[in-house]
Design a protein around this nucleic acid. Structure first.
Lengths: 339, 339
DNA sequence: TAAGGCAACGTTACGGGTAACTCAATATCA
DNA sequence: TGATATTGAGTTACCCGTAACGTTGCCTTA
């Protein structure tokens, strides 16, 4: 609210040099004497000059140091971790994260892309790989590095880092079948249609049928995945399908909720019913039980995505796709593998 | 990677009008015919023109639509929620969040402030109220709305929204004393010195001594607050102080870890030992127990902070400070209140 | 029919910094 | 000592969009 912005010209004026000389001093571009440097820096200090990076980006053909990052939501701890990984890495290299939350809506994504592109970002990191037609147009025409994360995709718009969700679902399905379960249930949400979670469900379903098991019911709630929805989803699922002996959940939060429901109803986990999650959240490794889950390197996805943008920006070579993989965590919430 | 950026001049040229006319059309500023509008819009479409907001901000005395938001970390669910609240509200009004993570370090905060100010943001939202000298200088001189969040502070740099952490600690201490506990312990981290958590501890200590209890030990781990540190901190605390009958934790994550430790060691909660957390995370309300905690309106803090920035930006009146308060959640992890 | 009004569009200048160029003064060398 | 580098610093043009003002041509109206 106090002093108006100080421009480089004012600093130069006060120091008795030209704007250009002051600019050189601040950028350490050489071509000035020590005496001049001191004069200029003294005025910078005295006036509290802060450079205007808008002007810098605007002037040269330099890119900005913004990187647009879109994630579906922050309520999901998983995406918070991805974001943390991205922001840490970007910050270490002097770049800034401009956040966008799509809330799983393509329209939100599209309008966010338009807005963020208008700020001339150095790159974009986008969760998911299904975009609107116009979004794809804008992205391919932007001329900046674009990284699609989460879903691994061997044929990305530009670059990609993530994992194969279908395979992770398949792996879990096969594992559970190997543990002797035969009547499978799934509890998830319909929040992100055609996205990662449904790829996991497809993989899971394939594994179940490959193992001659039955996927009795796949319950898709119209809500966000959370402890609550896991709890109530399980109640709903078991009310109509008492014969289900193992449940795979969209993520760990839901699985923990489901576990608590089963416990409260006096069921024995894993004897009466098996519980499997996805994501391997920290919470699950400190409970009295160890949740069977799929471990995913969240932070690493974020960091790698940031590295891809930075490498591309600095014309360093980098492989445009990276599969970070996943790992099945056996846990104690399903019976031990048969054999 | 493909087409270079299209400027307004190119659009105007292609449409056979002047830059200024094209500008008027795009901003719907009036002063052009329908025929002209069509010509211009056709070229915008054909060339895929996207406006350059840098230039717009640069040109007029318009503010940008960036709002810098600094939080300590995202690993802590609480801050993720605050951020979500901010970003939702800002997004709804066409503003963008530029994220900064201070990792509880004043130096990080200072350099982040410098960087983000150089992008001419419309406002800043900063977690905490202890800043370096230079940070304060830059903030007061920036001439934009600044909101300090988390810690309520009746005398902010500019504006403030949060709660009184000291009071929340005091409230918890008094409550626990009223439940008949006498030998108190505290487990937290030394991560954010002089910050919210230590204010809570101070309040807690005061309540304990006001109630003639004894704060046997306040354990400050050199680590981040998490399930793990709660678990191992409890182990450490009880190893040296077997007589402690209730533990207050820096946050719910740590308290849940502590609860699990006690359970595994065969202690009865709340009979043998009481457990109290802070923050009232969702996880704690689905467990078989209900954690005694302090509920805080995280999302609301974020939303209100965003509203403050937006109001100030649009010259609408708004009270510069807001105390969102807190609420004690009795739970089942401490004995019932005596009497 | 000339003066005046107005819609529609063009021109100019500007913002803050930087690249490229220019120029003057001093230093170096044959 | 004169010719040529080297160094320090100033000048100019430009980036892209917008405010303010200027210009053109057509339509009123007395």
């Amino acid at each position: 609210m106090k002093n108006t912005k100080i421009s480089l010209a004012e600093v130069a004026n006060a120091a008795g040099v030209s704007k250009m000389t002051a600019s050189r001093v601040l950028r350490d571009g050489g071509g000035f004497s020590e005496a001049t440097r001191k004069k200029v820096m003294a005025e910078v200090e005295r006036l509290g000059y802060l450079p205007n990076r808008l002007a810098t980006v605007f002037a040269g053909d330099k890119k900005s140091t913004f990187v647009g990052v879109s994630i579906p939501e922050l309520g999901n701890e998983v995406f918070a971790q991805v974001l943390e990984g991205i922001n840490r890495k970007l910050g270490a290299f002097g770049h800034q994260t401009v956040l966008g939350m799509t809330e799983h809506e393509q329209e939100h994504e599209e309008s966010w892309i338009e807005t963020v592109l208008s700020w001339q970002p150095a790159g974009l990191i986008i969760t998911g790989r299904s975009h609107s037609q116009r979004a794809i147009q804008m992205l391919t025409g932007a001329g900046i590095p674009i990284v699609e994360i989460w879903d691994f995709n061997s044929n990305p718009l530009d670059m990609c880092v993530g994992l194969n969700h279908f395979d992770s679902g398949y792996t879990m399905g096969r594992y559970l079948a190997g543990c002797g379960y035969g009547a499978f249930g799934y509890v998830g949400t319909s929040h992100d249609t055609a996205n990662a979670a449904s790829a996991r469900l497809s993989g899971f379903g394939k594994a179940v049928s490959d193992a001659s098991g039955t996927l009795k019911k796949q319950l898709l709630l119209k809500d966000v995945p959370s402890f609550y929805t896991g709890y109530y989803g399980t109640e709903q699922l078991l009310a109509s399908h008492r014969d289900i002996d193992v449940i795979f959940y969209q993520n760990d939060n839901m699985a923990v909720g489901g576990y608590e429901y089963c416990k409260r109803k006096g069921m024995s986990v894993p004897r009466d019913i098996g519980i499997a999650g996805w994501g391997d959240l920290p919470i699950t490794s400190i409970q009295s039980y160890r949740l069977t889950s799929i471990a995913v390197p969240h932070l690493k996805i974020g960091q790698h995505a940031a590295e891809m943008v930075l490498a591309q920006t600095n014309d360093q070579p980098i492989r445009p796709t990276h599969d970070v993989g996943f790992k099945l965590v056996p846990g104690t919430t399903v019976r031990s593998q048969a054999g």
